[in-house]
Amino acid sequence: MNVENAKAQMRKGVLEFCILSILSEREAYPSDIIDELKEARLIVVEGTLYPLLTRLKNAGLLSYRWEESNSGPPRKYYKLTEIGKEFLIELDKTWHELQAAVKKTTSKNKDNE
């Protein structure tokens, strides 16, 4: 068990949640999503994103449309589907519960020290 691995696992868990959140505000193509995630230090390499997007799309949470680009090949613009929106609400709820639970647990244990 090493700490980098544990960190990566934690990040992975919230990555999907974050992607859905980004897309809930606007349509975006992978580069935009990558920029935001990189800024938040949630991903290091871009390659991580593509399998996730494909999986979310195949699960029916995302849909995309093609848009021509003047700087390269056509881009896929992703947006949330109706299922995706419901899914995000559920995740949001769980996140807040989780956040509270984690905060409670860790602060309690700190008091005991």
Binding site: Y50, S69, S71, G72
Partner: peptide, 20 residues
């Protein structure tokens, strides 16, 4: 699942980066 699509997406991104 969707392996071809993932690779195609990555290739497309590589093309974009090359273009830049």
């Amino acid at each position: 699942e969707g392996a071809d699509e993932i690779v195609a997406d990555i290739e497309s991104r590589i093309a974009e980066l090359f273009q830049k």
